[in-house]
Design a protein around this nucleic acid. Sequence first.
DNA 1: TTGTAGGCGTTATCAT
DNA 2: ATGATAACGCCTACAA
Lengths: 346, 346
Amino acid sequence: MRKQDEQIPGVPTLQDVAKAAGVSTATVSRCLNAPSVVSEKTRVRVMEAVKTLGYAPNFSAQALAAKRTNTFGAIVPTMANAIFARGLQAFQEELQKSNITMLVASSSYRPELEEEQIRALVARGADALLLIGHDRSDDIYKFLERRGIPYVVAWVHDDGQSHVSIGFDNKLAMQSLTRAVLDLGHRRLGYITAQRIGNDRAQARYGGLSDALSESGLSIDDVALEETDYSIKSGADAFDRILKRQPDTTVVMCGNDVLAAGALQKARSLGLQVPKDVSITGFDDIDIAEIVSPALTTIHVPHRNMGRGAASMLIEMSRDGTRPKSRELPAHIEWRGTLGPSPDQM
Amino acid sequence: MRKQDEQIPGVPTLQDVAKAAGVSTATVSRCLNAPSVVSEKTRVRVMEAVKTLGYAPNFSAQALAAKRTNTFGAIVPTMANAIFARGLQAFQEELQKSNITMLVASSSYRPELEEEQIRALVARGADALLLIGHDRSDDIYKFLERRGIPYVVAWVHDDGQSHVSIGFDNKLAMQSLTRAVLDLGHRRLGYITAQRIGNDRAQARYGGLSDALSESGLSIDDVALEETDYSIKSGADAFDRILKRQPDTTVVMCGNDVLAAGALQKARSLGLQVPKDVSITGFDDIDIAEIVSPALTTIHVPHRNMGRGAASMLIEMSRDGTRPKSRELPAHIEWRGTLGPSPDQM
DNA sequence: TTGTAGGCGTTATCAT
DNA sequence: ATGATAACGCCTACAA
């Protein structure tokens, strides 16, 4: 009288559909998962029952029984950052084509939190994982290997790393930009970076700066360095500090466009002309790079392509159990208005 | 020899932990979910086994048995839009405090797709749902009611609507901004809106414009209207068309900041001074509003608060089964540099 | 082509 | 405080 004779409809199950269509649950299941193997006649009947009852499979039960969830997970540092938001959007659009759902978690740039999130997504049955950057504990990589969960490391490409990845060479990109800056005669540099700890992209970019400097016989120790968090205001404040410490600075390079936008804003409010008095460079080429004025000279990064590519790699890995080769995507200098010759050149 | 005597370890289950600790699976389950009810001694033993085996509960099984997933879903039009990305980030951070996972799906502003996504998230066991705007089919609302899934409609507040919501009055906000514009003497207006179909925020904003005009004895038919999609370039193009159609336009109001940024850019490239020759207004107050120059006069919208508030409302609804009152958050004009008196005033 | 039935890994209700 | 054991809803050999 409690369980069996329940009168209230509740949520329809396979059982209900089976009963309504006068077939077994197995047949209903097949209609849904392998329609070709069931006769036209019964299939029509079953599908009708499905429709009228408003049946939708219970995901948990499905996952439990089938041992696959058609769900991929993505862990990003933050979604509030346009570069990840755009990449995720593309990632998701690509997955959707294959009827795969995306689960997102954000780690707030905190390694412990990221580990937790990875485990959580795996526990939830994520069939594959998108990770940002390769900088994480061995334990967690082992964990993934052991569970046989395919993953790709995105937003970076580094020949020294063994994990399947899709991205660009952050170091090389910043190195080439720095070379361009030096070629323009700049010698008194400032550099604003995001927090580098636990962020291999920021580290690599810094490394690129350093290397380019060395090439020219200069030292990274001579650049006015500011490390700060990710916001326009932080960029502005950092710019201010740099100019205070080193008033004859001719160029301030920034680890990303957001910081650069802040720097640019501050320069303007300080009455400095960009790039006549001081040059500024960014990195990422997000929307704001184009609308500030003068528009930011920056590194163009193929965010959407990375998201899309990561999706297709994961789909392949998950489907075929293969291990595709890492993909390096191009990043290039986007010349716009904030980088000019050093005033010293005159 | 196949199932039982499997030698390869595989993923540890409750069973394995139970065996290792010499207790029943029930006890292990209790250790994890209600530690207080099991004796100190056995608990320690069990937790040890958990640790050494690296056990993590299987989410699907858990959900299937417990009929709750600790997962909330969010369906947004797109994550590539800063306003949603920021709101989601806040939403997720708040959920995390209560150990709830967020599932995101994006509908690309397509109603049918949104319905699909809602059903998908529900099928995946979402305990509650965050929806954007109240504009959707009755069917889907009925579906949610029937399943007893709590949901809140965010980004809007409209007394005429019955669903639990958190947001601000889009119409009123645009109305007040329009009043301010008219007070400054502007009479030749242009308006750039995002696609209004299926987007009640865009509709409401347009309505606010229209109403404010009527109040002053003016007609919406006299404003040069451009409807376009969401991008900086679209805003720029629309601005161009407006000035072609109506060269004596003194102000171009925009349905959001992205379009306004485009308009501003185009104005500059057309050699127009803002706001001396032409004024521009935005809506949303996202990052870019502050960094363009002159900075955008716009409507400040509490994105993060909406995300956070939506989370806490949903948590309450899901926990207590209550139905909280809708919350209206304040939105106000953020006066900056792009809105000035009409040149006609001189 | 279709049905039967055993599992999937937990939770929760009873006893004990 | 702990242990059996029946759900939970679906998938999938295997049998018919």
